[in-house]
Amino acid sequence: MTVSPATDAFLELRDLRIHFPTDDGLVKSVDGLSYRLDRGKTLGIVGESGSGKSVTSLGVLGLHNRRNAQVSGEIWLDGLELVSAPEDVVRGLRGKKMAMIFQDPLSAMHPYYTIGNQIIEAYRIHNKVSKSVARKHAIDMLGRVGIPQPDRRVDDYPHEFSGGMRQRAMIAMALSCDPELLIADEPTTALDVTVQAQILDLMRDLQREFDSALIIITHDLGVVAELSDDILVMYGGKCIEYGSTDDIFYNPEHPYTWGLLGSMPRLDREPTDRLQPIKGTPPSLINVPPGCAFSPRCPYGSRTGGLSTGEVPELTESRGGHKVRCHMPPAERRSIWESDVKPMLETT
């Protein structure tokens, strides 16, 4: 049992570790992650596949099977510690206190039950109401997320909805009990851009209305730029950079974040001749490179005098809440950004 006092933050993760023992070795999907999030705020979690971003959020909801996942650390949600809490307590919180929007609505919904039934089920678990009241509420929610003719579509099965509508129905389901914490895992990745824009608008409006805390997990830097207050960049199961959205986009300090920004072709800039990719591939989570996990791909590793491959860097505060996990001193990082990286990103 943990004895640390509850924090004033609505959600706080302290040194969360989620490891999976496998035949090939221990997979350290999340390895010492800490962050906090207040009500009404949006946190964007960015990273490539295998960086541990989805595993973290499943961990917050307590959806890992304790038999094959080793979870340690602390998750404080509104004064309650979740890692050590019994399963039925966490189950009681899911849906009402915290909810999740999954990436692929077709596999997240039950194909044999109507959309309406699935919303009603969740609503009635947390609210002692009759079926007909719950049904009215489900129709209401579907209307709120912009499903046309919700009173008729409520009896449709998931396969009868288009991709964009299914994602809306998922959002309706997640929001049906007014959760205070909403986690959206790649909510728009499977959607077309015009529908993505609608869904992002919808999430922004609903968050404002419910004043909930929102975590949005994505690999699309455009999506986090639109929605987030703060951004957390993950790499190899660790947070490597954390800061306000402006910090991350205008004064990023980690070479990996620079690499991400250089990899993307951008519509808002003149077309470049060449993209600036990050060399190599993301690390295996079983054999994480020694020292800094990014060191094999980092163009500045040699500047640390061997530190980068010898020692795991700490996440340290650079300035004003902006934290970076890098061996290079902050002043050096800033000067590389100002003199090398930024001009390259802007002129090319």
Binding site: A197, Q198, A225, E226, L261
Partner: peptide, 19 residues
């Protein structure tokens, strides 16, 4: 206009066409 632009400054003031 629907493509999200990776620049927080674009959040406000960008004219969006919503289909």
């Amino acid at each position: 206009s629907a493509v999200p632009i990776p620049d927080p400054a674009n959040r406000t003031g960008r004219e969006r066409i919503r289909l």
